[in-house]
Design a protein around this nucleic acid. Structure first.
Length: 268
DNA sequence: CAGATATGACAAC
DNA sequence: TTGTCCTATCTGG
């Protein structure tokens, strides 16, 4: 379930589990064996997130760059690590904790210039203090691409995925296919602020909830939503179900390989 | 048990 | 725009 909030949660968890300790590092699957051999026995300095990218920092300016992609998952636990099963790209452990990484798009060792190159291609992360919202809008304002694609473009804003983009646009009453250059400048800061609030709440909750107080299951007298994602949302994966506000059937379409969900009434 | 599916990103047309 | 990659889990038969 990797949008930016997940990565920020992982970064702080990994700081807590391993920060300042010497760690064993391996790659049971073998695909990160060379990197693991370099890191094994080094001190884990800390972990930071930027957007959907997770950086594990080790002594000696070694950095592991992790990107979960669509399927990547991290699990951890206390005590000695369990017998490996499945495809474990990266395993870490210290005296008290262990961690397994499976299915990431990226798990690579970077030197400082490599980290700089990575950061240079990422836009501002709404979850970080000082993130430059105005710079992000400058790119949006001169693009003809749909606003939903621009929000998910990591070089424009880092950390937003399909759920946050879909739901924030619903809350803003903006049709997801609106070309960037037609998105009004005065609506950008409210949208950015809303995104930041949704993402920050998701970091704390560990799930994405976007439904306002007045439309919650309790307020509406309806059953709580239950699905794989687990959060209360307005339109994401609610195809064919009635819009929580106006009752119109939620629509779904494909847009450049991703799913698009919107209410045709609330999002003119 | 095969097939579909998933909150992502990139290369190649 | 399409194809490819990464892996686990859910679905239907």
């Amino acid at each position: 379930m990797p949008e930016g909030h997940t990565i920020h949660r992982l970064a702080s968890r990994h700081r807590n589990l391993f920060g300042g300790t010497t760690v064993r590092v391996s790659s049971p699957q073998g695909r990160f064996a060379a990197g693991a051999a370099v890191l094994d026995g080094l001190r884990f300095v800390g972990a930071v997130a930027h957007g959907k990218h997770l950086l594990h920092r080790y002594e000696g300016d070694r950095t592991v760059h992790i990107h979960l992609g669509l399927y990547g998952k991290v699990t951890d636990g206390d005590g000695a690590p369990p017998e490996p099963f499945g495809e474990i790209r990266l395993r870490m452990s210290n005296d008290a904790h262990w961690l397994d990484l499976r299915g990431p798009t990226a798990c690579e060792l970077l030197d400082p210039p490599g980290v700089d190159t990575l950061m240079a291609r990422l836009g501002p992360d709404p979850l970080k203090r000082g993130a430059d919202a105005v710079a992000a809008y400058a790119k949006i304002a001169r693009s003809t691409r749909p606003i939903v694609s621009l929000l998910m473009d990591q070089s424009i804003v880092a950390g937003i995925g399909l759920i946050f983009a879909t739901e924030a646009l619903y809350r803003a009453g903006v049709n997801p296919t609106t070309p960037g250059r037609d998105f009004p400048a005065q609506e950008w800061l409210p949208l950015w602020t809303d995104l930041r609030a949704l993402m920050a709440a998701a970091v704390i909750a560990g799930r994405i909830d976007t439904v306002r107080e007045e439309h919650t299951p309790e307020a509406m007298g309806r059953e709580p939503r239950v699905d794989r994602h687990g959060g209360e949302v307005y339109v994401y994966r609610r195809t064919g179900q009635p819009c929580l506000v106006c009752g119109t059937d939620v629509r779904q379409d494909a847009l450049s390989g991703r799913n698009l969900y919107w209410c045709p009434t609330c999002q003119k």
